[in-house]
Amino acid sequence: MAKSQQKARDFTVQYSEPVGILAAQSVGEPGTQMILRSFHFAGIESAIATSGLPRIVELVDAKKKPTTPLSTVYLEGAASKDIEQAEKIAKKINEVRMDSLIRRSVENFSKGTIKILLSKQELESEGLTPGQVSDKLAKLLKLDTSVEKNVITVKVHTKNLKDIRLTMVKISKAVINGIEGAGKAVVQTNPKTGEIYIVSAGSNIEGIITVSGIDKSRLYTNDVFAINRLFGIEAARNALARELQATLDEQKISVDFRHLLLIADAMTSTGTIKGVGRHGISGEKNSVFARAAYEETVKHLINAASFGETDHMRGVTENILVGKQIPIGTGSVKLAIKKEDMAKIKPK
């Protein structure tokens, strides 16, 4: 026990080790290989997520919304084994927008009505009736609607062209069924464990968590900002590191997880998710020279001069810039003497 503890201690990072630089290089070098090795598998899954370098860039730059948002919803109790129950829950999540149901629509400006012909096939596949759609529209947008077979007639009590058009736009954007922003929900089975879960092509986990029958403790999405909003910054940090690793693993690139955790820590240290670039970590360095050496040199120097900023020369970049020893490893050791002791030394 004591021996293994000692062994573990021997492998801890030494004081003044530049862990940030190591992390950056450890991710940056494999990143150069990713450009050459980006390929796609076609048509295996219903939704193909962004992968490879574009995904890494997206995560590291702290993009507010991922290009391909995905949520994984695990199910509670028996539903995780029963495909019929799972389908039922998926129906509750699956977002159905009005424009996907409309086959044709006619706006009558002289009568102030809109006639909407619904697509029979779409209605059947979503398990909806024209009556339900009409009721939902009436409730959502407070419209005067009536149904006749597959045609919904909306009376807009005005003949103003602009208002009718606006109503039509609102109608086509209305969410008839499911959760807004949840996207298309598909039931999938884990081939190894046989567990049934739902994958949806949206990241509105704030909405999905209100659906009953799902396992709230395992709800996950690739949108780190959504995780931050719902679960907090610590969860977002974990998700960020996890997403980075998943993306690298997919390309069979092995980077030590601790490098990714450090990047995630640095990005979340201010309480919100900050990118690493000009508008994030690098742009908020304390040193004027470090910022000027990175991007927008003139802007930073002029601002620093006009506001009388001080540079304490504590970082690496600014010391390289002026040709001093960098404060890393042995370079961080400084010689100091107490004032009282200084007085004792007599000049010869």
């Binding site: 719902l230 601790r258 955790l261």
Partner: peptide, 29 residues
């Protein structure tokens, strides 16, 4: 010390106010 916003869901749950320090029990693999 790294920051956490008062509006963070975890802060809301604990009722933490600005100036409080949160202890977080992390588990990285």
């Amino acid at each position: 010390i790294p920051k956490i916003f008062e509006s963070d869901p975890q802060c809301q749950k604990l009722g933490a106010k600005p100036g409080h320090v949160l202890k977080i029990q992390r588990n990285d693999g």
